[in-house]
Nucleic acid binder design. Structure first.
Lengths: 209, 209
DNA sequence: CGTATCCGATACATTGGTGTATCCGATGAG
DNA sequence: CTCATCGGATACACCAATGTATCGGATACG
């Protein structure tokens, strides 16, 4: 593919990479603020400190940017999960309720509000665009399988036992978390309300012994 | 207000009412298909068999139509709940799992796909438009309080007992149902997957005696 | 009928955003 | 330092959609 004889002039160069990154970053902001439809190429470029020339030399549509942004968002989410796993400390002595509170707060508390909006936008785009649709599905799969792993290890570490199919629990957690995040976004509240999630984990698990 | 001396010429007349209704109906379709941003006044009018003249003589913005459509959607949902309550038959002899299956299927199975999209659009609009925001909140309240009532009566009728706060259960059901509906919409599948809902009700309730 | 009013249709001006063709400064290889 | 190429800026043509001003057919009322 990258034949030096055919220098493949478009794609990849230090400068190009930096420009793309800045545009992407600005796009995430603008999409989060006004949605994909509400965003204009002009605005994104301005925000990034460019004119539209830079955009059209790097991308062809806003949607392309959204896909790239979503892909990046997935990476961030996975990273955040790993980091949370690293910081995790279980207290086998605590009672059921205390353990649940701690776990939910630990894994589901922090959330980047921009990511929520981006995901909503992506899902909407997925209605008409097959590429967006398959990205949505891929993101779901990655997140689910990683969370499934985390849950299994928590279970294996003892303390909690699931009262339902693990995959169902994972999907429910994701669904509830999404709703909670969207609600927080709606009310303009920075804090995600974890009540539903905590309550769910409460009824869906029981103390191990 | 309706002073015969001051004939208040705009508002209300048989013809006007019919026109508004047709426009509203067309708008629901178009919004459901392309979203609010994707919809154009032209398209809505065309769908309703009018030209833009009719629109501007009855409304001033697409958003006004969306609010009206959402209000209508709430009425439909409440109606559907009443109707489901009317058709409800409990089998106290059945075991827990069978009762749960039956209830979830009965109340949460059928869903108008257009309604889902309209609601998503409304919630998005609510980000910037305070009027839309308060409508969203009002819709939530109405639905929650009605569902709360339904759940209480099911519980009172015996057979099931809740393992969590009733209001939390209601909100969780709504959240999971919304997610399920959106997922169905995403996959283009007409059928809503009730797995998560069923599983939730399973762990969140127990046989009464 | 006749006539006044209502309301949807038509035509037009305007706007905001897009895509493209071209220009020219920056960058990097030799 | 020189030159070729890259990549962002500028300018322009274009289009889709909006909002408005005006027209004329329908409707209701005497």
């Amino acid at each position: 593919m990258s034949d030096p004889q055919n220098p493949e002039p478009a794609r990849a160069s230090a400068r190009r990479g930096r420009t793309r990154a800045r545009l992407l970053d600005a796009a995430v902001d603008v999409f989060a603020e006004r949605g994909v439809e509400g965003a204009t190429v002009e605005l994104i470029c301005e925000r990034a400190g460019f004119t539209r020339g830079a955009f059209y030399s790097n991308f062809s549509t806003k949607e392309e940017l959204l896909l790239a942004a979503a892909e990046h968002g997935l990476a961030v989410s996975l990273e955040r999960i790993e980091e949370a796993v690293g910081r995790l400390e279980l207290d086998p002595g605590a009672d059921h309720a205390a353990q649940v509170d701690a776990l939910v707060e630990h894994f589901l508390g922090p959330e980047d509000p921009r990511g929520v909006r981006i995901e909503v936008e992506l899902r909407r785009l997925a209605q008409d665009d097959p590429q967006a649709r398959s990205l949505v599905l891929r993101i779901n799969e990655h997140l689910e399988s990683r969370i499934l792993g985390v849950i299994s290890s928590i279970e294996a570490l003892g303390g909690l036992r699931l009262r339902a199919e693990p995959i169902v629990v994972v999907r429910t957690l994701v669904a509830l978390h999404r709703q909670a995040a969207e609600l927080a976004w709606l009310t303009g509240d920075g804090e995600v309300d974890l009540t539903l999630l905590t309550s769910y984990v409460m009824v869906a698990t029981e103390a191990a012994d």
